[in-house]
Nucleic acid binder design. Structure first.
Length: 400
DNA sequence: TCTGGGGTCCTAGGACCC
DNA sequence: TCTGGGGTCCTAGGACCC
């Protein structure tokens, strides 16, 4: 989806079309929306001058999305708000409304599922679609189906998206970036040399800041330069696994399937404080936040029907260094009190001299859970045996 | 310019078992 | 007097993605 969060906001504030708008910082609340409607009659009646500007923002947030006019100023997602404010102080700042974005996410994905049932969810604004067996999926290299998906999504939501069509997910993802917004790009295997090789390595999904910097240090900037390196050379510098992957990716090779079903591995809640807190001085406040995080994770587990037995915490110090601790217990749980108790044990094993900027709680090793019977549903992972095996005929040593 | 929140996967060492 | 080989699980950290 093109500038997804911002585009959803423009649907309710059409008067902001064409202007630099960024989403981030605070959360949308129904109360604030009600107040705006009371004041102006309707949301689309609010004059542009009345919207808050980025320049006024004070705090720790990051930009989640910027409209294309805002991107002209160098503002982009994941950028700190204070930096963005310097680059484009006049940009209009809107709070994040995840509830609404999820609704639009569900809608556009349902549109796609009607047209092409093999769809892999890649988050709130992105999917992979298998065109292979869809009627007309091969017409004009996929362009016809891509265009009709775009049109149906626009009819249902008023939102635009960009589509990349290619023989695998790696290339399709890259192709989808070529013509944003509202673009369609097709990459055939024989196009890799002239369409992919000139691009920066960082355009490959899976090469991030660290790998990108390491590659640059080795004199490799473009994908073509990466493709020119031998497999043994890459494995020598990046390890067997990642090296082999780099080699394949640089040649446009990717055999991952489109995965239509998946189970969650963990659920977590975390929060960054408005200002740093200290375990000694702010004990009461931290305790309340900690308990609240445990309650929220428990609530998430219960709502979605899961329980877990690995309970962990995350802590980020004022210097941005993070530590994690986790404990795996015998019994699965989705209970806030149990989570709080075990997470408390984790917290005891972490140094607390420094000030803290973030606290998080995580539950992993999940199973489907029936709250009424307090039992796992379906296949339960086998718990490791705690016994020494003494007296168990099946565990007699084969040799000494 | 100090950097959100929710995830996944990988690596590597140690415990423990046969 | 230093000592095999295979496996799984647990833990901590880190890279990366949306």
């Amino acid at each position: 989806m093109d500038a997804f969060f911002a585009s959803v906001e423009l649907l309710r504030y059409p008067q902001l079309k064409g202007l630099p708008v960024v989403i981030g910082g605070s959360r949308h609340t129904p109360e604030h929306e009600a107040q705006l409607i009371a004041q102006w009659g309707s949301l689309d009646a609010i004059p542009v001058e009345a919207f808050p500007r980025l320049a006024r923002y004070v705090g720790r947030g990051v930009i989640t999305t910027a409209t294309y006019p805002a991107r002209q100023f160098g503002v982009g997602s994941a950028m700190g708000m204070m930096k963005a404010a310097r680059l484009c102080p006049q940009a209009i700042l809107l709070p994040i409304d995840f509830v609404r974005y999820r609704q639009y996410s569900r809608t556009f994905k349902d549109v796609i599922l009607e047209m092409a049932p093999l769809m892999e969810d890649r988050g709130v604004d992105e999917v992979y679609i298998d065109f292979t067996l869809v009627p007309d999926g091969q017409h004009e290299g996929g362009r016809v189906l891509a265009a009709s998906i775009q049109q149906r999504i626009f009819e249902k939501t008023g939102l635009t998206c960009s589509v990349g069509v290619a023989p695998n997910k790696l290339l399709a993802k890259m192709a989808s970036e070529f013509n944003k917004p509202q673009g369609i790009s097709i990459v055939m295997p024989q196009d890799v040399e002239h369409q992919i090789w000139p691009l920066s390595c960082r355009k490959i999904n899976g090469i991030g800041p660290k790998a990108g910097a390491k590659l640059q240090g080795l004199g490799i900037v473009t994908i073509g330069e990466l493709a020119a390196k031998s497999l043994p050379w890459l494995m020598q510098h990046f390890g067997k696994s990642y090296g082999a992957w780099l080699h394949a990716a640089s040649h446009g090779q990717d055999d991952r399937a489109v995965v239509t079903e998946s189970e969650p591995v963990s659920m977590s809640r975390e929060t960054t404080f408005d200002s740093d807190l200290h375990a000694g001085h702010d004990k009461v406040q931290l305790g309340a936040i900690f308990t609240r995080l445990c309650e929220r994770v428990a609530q998430d587990l219960q709502r979605k029907g899961y329980a877990g037995r690995t309970i962990g915490i995350k802590l980020r110090y004022a210097n941005f260094k993070s530590v994690t601790r986790e404990i795996t217990v015998d019994a699965f749980t989705q209970d806030a009190g149990t989570i709080r108790r075990v997470a408390g044990q984790c917290l005891k094993r972490v140094p607390l001299e420094q000030s803290i900027r973030l606290l998080g709680v995580r539950v992993g090793c999940l199973v489907h859970w029936d709250a009424s019977t307090q039992q796992a549903e379906g296949a339960v992972p086998v718990l490791p045996r705690k016994s020494t095996g003494k007296g168990d005929p099946l565990s007699l040593p084969l040799f000494d």
